[in-house]
Nucleic acid binder design. Structure first.
Lengths: 349, 349
DNA sequence: ATTAGCACTCGATTGAGGTGAGTGCTAACA
DNA sequence: TGTTAGCACTCACCTCAATCGAGTGCTAAT
């Protein structure tokens, strides 16, 4: 059985309608609402074929059809075309991004909020991963005579800090000198690749400050060991409650629980090895509780390193065309900003 | 009509049962389950009185009674006695707190998570408020030749930082000198009280660095102006979905929406002017969407300054005795830790 | 190949009883 | 005079059957 033009059009009509209504779509509805020039009976025949091919499903005999995961997949692969963002949206995105050029964390947070507002789905992003990036500077700041804050700045203004307790606290000037020495040694080093030779060098050049060096090494170690992906953040999870798919509180609760223990989700997101958008439909997510959900992910990067993943979570009947266009424009914009920072960094002495 | 011992006992039985079941409580249930030595008919008479006095409500004629806001209020004021935490809980709390002694933000976050886990309600806390506290140190860190990070450490290891763009970037040594001068001027100043004379002093002693000084002043200004209360954080909002009160998705959605726009909630929390626990029952919250919820709040403080509020949100029929005991023990523990930090600070030169 | 027509299916809605938990009232009792 | 047993009554909720209607599959005509 061939998947001709007409079948595709009918499938598209079913998906479009189902995205809007969340109700099974019948042949008559399509004949009336979508101007295909054929009667409901013909559509019925075609639908019967589409069902046999696995693109649509009848929830129960004698009800309309809903798209299957495979149907969405076909839609995404064959039919979906990227739309451009509207002017209004563009304006909002730009103003948001310009206000936050300096801090990636904020930028991502705001981006997620914006995405969830624009799409009414849930935005997910992983914190920028630091371990693949280069160290820029290390500084110390004594908070009192026992607590010392270690501050690390990495590529792209990514900041990490930790407060540690020390037995012996050097005075401020000495701390500054130490941090200068350390920065000299570590500047430009890729965090993950720091090995014993670097550590040895730190110890030998900073004789008498073994305590601080060992705390620093521990700090770097923690960052390096932190799982391949940063912590996940969500925005607009409440939006999920608006979908009839989750009008059953039990279902909503189980979804939220799944979102909370993030490991499986983290795996999913880290699956995207850079490059283009990735779309997981229904069971393709591999997560039982998300069989009625789809996730669209993409990565944002700068320099030579992938820094994080960003994605949109919605019901399987989500408006893929909107989601794809929003997501890709956002990433484009973010990367523009990040690369600007990157340029500036390269000028640095 | 007097509120005698027996009426109180009946009220307590109604509340206890309703907390457990979320179902209206009838006279026969009480006669059977609670050993009050009187018949259901007598209880009915007493319940009729209690209703007349406004402590309980009949959702519809001929159903059991449920406690009114006033009833819970009476319960909280007259009947409630603090319980002690169990040993297991104590162990968990202590190990959590010891792992996080250094960073208040983390400490609060973990505390909230713990509270929501222990109670199955929702924990709320406001970020420590900095503006009433004293500045400890100011440092700068150049990230590249255009971006400068300003770091402020305040009392109790509260850290704030901001990345700003500068036209002229002094070299590292000079930045260090500048920060030393600034710290000399500002150390010990209460953020909110910084006035023009201090600002003038900064400008005059740092001739030639007007740009950086003005950015610093702006930064301090932002912190000082930031509303009287820090950003709100939640933990365990999903727990609310488990309560039959919110088995209607619409209700859950409206509650979550309310939590998102935090202004009214912030007002409520900041109402607690230090001191003891405060309990808002149902409409006492003054928030329409929370008429079925109660909030128990308290403040944690150290030094001479109130630093933040922490609270528990649950349905009006929440287990007040548990909530109160958990909350007060947690705060006791937190304050123990914070005051330790404080001690250390005082030793600082 | 397409369409109109028709019988059929089955989920959703509606309405009528029935059920049971609970009340209020009254009269009897200690 | 406070307490209790008994009884009629109320009302949310459940169940079951009838009905409705959106939708299908099949067949025969175009």
């Amino acid at each position: 059985m061939a998947l001709d033009e007409r079948k595709l059009k009918i499938l598209q009509a079913i998906i479009t309608d189902y995205i809007a209504t969340a109700e099974p779509v019948g042949s008559r509805t399509i004949a009336k609402k979508y101007d295909l020039g054929i009667s409901s009976a013909t559509i019925r025949n075609e639908m019967s074929d589409l069902e046999e091919m696995g693109f649509i499903i009848q929830p129960h005999a004698s009800s309309g059809r809903i798209p299957s995961d495979l149907g969405y997949r076909l839609y995404v692969d064959k039919i979906l075309r990227r739309q451009k963002l509207g002017d209004e949206d563009k304006r909002i995105v730009n103003s948001m991004i310009n206000r936050n050029v300096n801090q990636i964390q904020y930028l991502m947070d705001e981006t997620a909020r914006l995405i969830s507002k624009m799409t009414n789905y849930t935005a997910i992003f992983s914190e920028p991963v630091v371990k693949n990036t280069k160290i820029n500077k290390i500084r110390f700041m004594s908070l009192n005579n026992a607590d010392l804050m270690i501050i690390m700045a990495a590529e792209g203004n990514v900041i990490r800090n930790k407060i540690v307790s020390v037995n012996y606290m050097p005075d401020e000037d000495r701390l500054y000198e130490i941090s200068t020495v350390i920065t000299d040694i570590m500047h430009g080093q890729i965090i993950e690749n720091i090995d014993q030779s670097v550590v040895d060098k730190l110890y030998s050049e900073l004789n008498g400050y073994d305590e601080i060096v060992s705390l620093l090494v521990e700090f770097i170690d923690e960052i390096s060991k932190s799982s391949g992906m940063g912590k996940l953040h969500f925005s607009g999870t409440n939006n999920m409650l608006a979908f009839p798919e989750f009008s059953d509180v039990e279902k909503a609760k189980s979804l939220f629980k799944t979102l909370e223990k993030t490991d499986s989700l983290t795996n999913l997101l880290s699956d995207n090895k850079g490059g283009d958008l990735q779309i997981y439909i229904g069971n393709e997510t591999g997560i039982e509780e998300m069989k009625d959900c789809s996730i669209v992910t993409t990565t944002y990067e700068f320099g030579d390193n992938i820094t994080g993943t960003i994605g949109i979570l919605g019901p399987t009947r989500m408006d893929y065309s909107q989601v794809v266009s929003v997501l890709s424009s956002m990433v484009e914009n973010i990367e523009g900003v990040l690369n600007n920072i990157d340029e500036k960094k390269k000028d640095d002495s």
